[in-house]
Design a protein around this nucleic acid. Structure first.
Lengths: 340, 340
DNA sequence: CTGAAAGCGCTTACAG
DNA sequence: CTGAAAGCGCTTACAG
């Protein structure tokens, strides 16, 4: 294993100088730096992250926490974040909590994250009040991505969930629908997670603004998944007269809804219109109308927000809250209600 | 930051004993171990991975390399691997190469993986011969998941790609199809990657066994994605008389094909049958017939194969090659060809 | 079964 | 601008 002494010997300088030159510190002459870089290159040397960290430097890793990497939004966020971080020379430690509370508690309680990573990205991961304090005590740069919970001092990246849901509902209203159902994200994700609440809120806002009273029988809660969406649709149909349109809290639920409707012998959009929220990779393939949110941008920007303090650029603060735009994408799953 | 000295002081033993007790070494009396565990628990102590690694221990991390985390198979493998690894106390370092050769080369060349992780999982990541040597020199436990390239001494987890492709094609033949097209995975992934070649091979085998000659005009190469599938289908349709059935190398391509066919005014399966390979989360929602492969099992088993040597259990060898079963799942996207 | 001491490979004051 | 030396928090022979 090549170590710093090897480079120092080859470049005829001390290890301290090698360390400085390689990290780009300004206190090294250009001639020396060139010699050190050449030696390191020749030997294929990279500093051991463990030794760096221990000596007071950096681990060179960023921890990213997601509920479930298989869900479209989270996979896309991680994909983009990884690219940004890797290009900047950072490793990505993935914590995939499987949507389970106990996993999150354990991660925060027993895994000393500050011993493993230089920064922390929480994606759609709500925290209990005590955990917010724990995380703040880590004194690591952090960022939240579409997490209801704001961590004091951390910047955030998200969309306007209320507005996006309102836009989806307004699209259905503008087509002439009156009986509009909502498949809401699961509230079993309690704590300060607000995405599902915000989206329901937007749905209700739009209805009320149009002079309609939200009907609780048209509002079903389920998991943010294909199965959740198809289950919720079955539930909806079992409650009697079906809606003429459905707004699902995410595209995966919407696709589950489309599938359940077809199985029930209902045509989309002739009998029931369906709109989602995401613009999933497959949305266009299945002709799903949706409100698009830029998932990759979430990941890229959040990673950038972490890189700023790590690279000693401006340190973003909690006031650095990036709200990304959403956009209605009309495809074939929505249309006017059947007349008569 | 709680360190080993704090625990040692509280438990009234040396740091050496704390280290031994916490790692479960046998040379510690039960009474002492209990005292140490209690002290560590009370202080919320976890050993610093950096210090452990440097002192000759483990990093506590496993590196997982995938082409693209957003693709269903890879996301699902990582999801399952992460769970297995986390339960065993290991972190997961994610390297998402974005399908780009240069990224892989750089990862293997400049990132001293053995300084970062205790083990390495290569998912569908083909290596150049020189890279196989590099990776073997790391002297880390490793495993390959559906990577054509076998690394000497490493176990592997995969399916029988040839057999799975044959099963898909045979299903179409048994329905009475003669003009069966294949959307092949992209060969721009050169090197020793063989998945796309194996699947095409299985397709041809089945045709030949049925006494049919594969028609090169019915064989189109494209990316393993929705867009790849829809592009390839457009290409196919532009070549004249359309096929009556399509076998796509993966479900994402198959879904792209279904979408392109519909856009072209062709009905699935009345005009053209479509079968994929995967059993993607959304396959059942879109009624896609497919040959299912157990992606989560790949991840779980591969992680287990890494854990064996890490936990000083039996060390698997290259001869430990796990071939997982596949299974035809018939849904609504396949049917007999139109007669006349 | 337990402890004192050396050492892992870096970075960081401190001097010059 | 550069170097000698201490020290980061662990684990591992070595002794007992």
């Amino acid at each position: 294993m090549t170590k710093i002494d090897d480079v120092a010997r080859l470049a005829r300088v001390s290890t301290a100088t090698v360390s400085r030159a390689l990290r780009g510190l300004p206190t090294v002459s250009e001639a020396t730096r060139a010699r050190v870089l050449a030696a390191a290159e020749q030997l294929g040397y990279t500093a051991s992250p463990s030794a760096s960290r221990l000596a007071g430097g950096r681990t060179g890793a960023v921890a990213v926490v997601v509920p479930q990497i298989t869900r479209w939004f989270f996979g896309t966020v991680v994909d983009a974040a990884e690219e940004t971080l890797r290009e900047a020379g950072y490793d990505l430690l993935l914590y995939n909590l499987g949507d389970r509370e106990s996993n999150r508690r354990q991660l925060l309680r027993t895994t000393n994250l500050h011993k493993r990573a230089d920064a922390l990205m929480l994606v759609a991961t709500p925290l209990a009040p005590a955990e917010v304090a724990t995380v703040a005590q880590l004194r690591l740069p952090g960022v939240t991505v579409s997490s209801g919970a704001a961590v004091p001092g951390w910047p955030s990246v998200r969309i306007d969930d209320v507005g996006a849901a309102r836009a989806a509902t307004e699209h259905l209203l503008s087509l002439g629908h009156h009986r509009i159902a909502h498949l809401a994200g699961d509230a079993s994700a309690e704590l300060s997670f607000t995405t599902h609440l915000d989206r329901r809120h937007g749905y209700r806002q739009a209805l009320l603004a149009a002079g309609r009273t939200p009907d609780p029988r048209l509002d079903v809660e389920a998991e943010f998944t294909v199965d959740g969406g198809s289950w919720a649709t079955g539930e909806l149909l079992s409650r009697g007269e079906p809606p003429t349109a459905i707004f699902a809290a995410c595209d995966e639920m919407a696709m589950g809804a489309m599938s359940a409707l077809r199985s029930a012998g209902l045509r989309v959009p002739q009998d029931v219109s369906v709109i989602g929220l995401d613009d999933h990779d497959l949305a266009s393939a299945v002709g799903l109308t949706t409100v698009a949110q830029p998932a990759a941008s979430h990941g890229r920007l959040a990673a950038g927000l972490l890189l700023d303090p790590l690279e000693n650029r401006a340190r973003p603060t909690a006031t650095t809250s990036i709200v990304l735009p959403t956009r209605l994408v009309v495809r074939e799953s929505t249309g006017p209600p059947r007349t008569g």
